[in-house]
C-alpha cells in the first residue's frame, strides 16, 4: 500500500486563495502559487484547489491559475469546482492539473465520470461527496438530495471514479475531528481509495482519520499558519502514522 497522504485544500475565488465561513465574509489570504509552494515545501503529499466561485465566465481565470501552479509545483494536484463537462476537465488537465474533482455535475449525470475516466484514466477523476444525515448534498453542501451516501460512493466507483473525497458536512469547519464512522462506512463499501475531509483540528485528528482512510484533507488547521505544516507532519508521524519519507534522494 502507498503511504497515507496529507492533503491541504485551498479554496480559490477569482484567482486568489480565500478563506471564509460558508461563503460569507471571504477573505483574501494569498496567491495560489505562493501558498502551494509553501505547502509543497512543508511536505504536503498532494494539494486540492477548489474553485468556490466557479462560473463559466471565470473558467479562464482558474485555467490560468492551474497553469501557473503546474509550472512551479512538483507534487500532484487536483482541481475541483465548476467541472461540469468533459471539456471543462480537459481544459484543467491539459493546463497541468493531475486530477479533476467532480461533485454536483456527477450527481446530475454520473456518465460524466465515465467519460472523463475513459479519456484520462480513473486516477484522474475524484468524486467529491458532501455527506450529511446519511444523504449526499449538492451545490456546495447547501442542497440535500435524496441520494444515500454509501450507494452513491459505490455508483461513482462503478462509473470509473479513481478516488472519493468524502466531506462530513456536520464536522466541516468544527475542528473537533473527522467523522470516522462515515469514512469507515464508505471506504468499506468500495475498492477505490478514500480521502477523509472535514473536522481536522489537531495532529491526533488527522492520525485517527488516516487509520480509516487513504488520505486526509486539511484546511483551516494549516491555513492559519502555512509555515506550520512541516510541524504538523512531524506530529502525525510521531503518533505512529507512516507518512512518506522526504529528502532521501
Amino acid at each position: 500500500m502507498p503511504r497515507p497522504r496529507l492533503i491541504p485544500c485551498l479554496d480559490v475565488a477569482h484567482g486568489r486563495v480565500v478563506k471564509g465561513v460558508s461563503f460569507v465574509g471571504l477573505r483574501d489570504v494569498g496567491d495560489p502559487v505562493e501558498l502551494a509552494t509553501h505547502y509543497s515545501n512543508g511536505g504536503a503529499d498532494e494539494l486540492v484547489f477548489l474553485d468556490i466561485a466557479a462560473t463559466p465566465e471565470e473558467a479562464a481565470t482558474m485555467t490560468a491559475v492551474v497553469a501557473r501552479v503546474a509550472e512551479v509545483l512538483s507534487i500532484p494536484f487536483t482541481v475541483g469546482g465548476g467541472v461540469r463537462s468533459v471539456d471543462d476537465a480537459s481544459r484543467i488537465i491539459e493546463s497541468g492539473a493531475d486530477r479533476v474533482s467532480l461533485n454536483s455535475a456527477a450527481l446530475a449525470d454520473p456518465s460524466l465520470i465515465t467519460k472523463i475516466a475513459t479519456r484520462y484514466g480513473s486516477q484522474a477523476v475524484v468524486v467529491a461527496i458532501d455527506a450529511g444525515e446519511g444523504v449526499v448534498h449538492s451545490h456546495g453542501g447547501r442542497v440535500a438530495t435524496q441520494v444515500a451516501t454509501v450507494p452513491w460512493a459505490q455508483r461513482a466507483a462503478e462509473c470509473g471514479a479513481g478516488e472519493i473525497l468524502l466531506t462530513s458536512i456536520r464536522q466541516d469547519g468544527r475542528r473537533s475531528g473527522y467523522d470516522l464512522e462515515l469514512t469507515r462506512a464508505v471506504r468499506d463499501a468500495i475498492a477505490i481509495p478514500v480521502i477523509a475531509s472535514g473536522g481536522a483540528g489537531s495532529a491526533a485528528h488527522v492520525a485517527e482519520a488516516l487509520a480509516v482512510a487513504d488520505a486526509a484533507l486539511v484546511a483551516s488547521i494549516v491555513h492559519e499558519n502555512p509555515e506550520g505544516l512541516a510541524g504538523l507532519r512531524d506530529e502525525i508521524i510521531n503518533l505512529g502514522v507512516a507518512l512518506r519519507p522526504i529528502g532521501v534522494r
Binding site: M1, P2, R3, P4, R5, D45, G121, S122, Q123, G162, E163, A191, I192, P193, D214, A215, R244, P245, V248, R249
Partner: peptide, 15 residues
C-alpha cells in the same frame, strides 16, 4: 485499492 495512488518507497533506491 485500485487505482494505486500515492507515495511509496522504491527499493533498493530508498526514496
Amino acid at each position: 485499492r485500485i487505482p494505486r495512488l500515492g507515495w511509496s518507497v522504491v527499493e533498493p533506491w530508498g526514496a
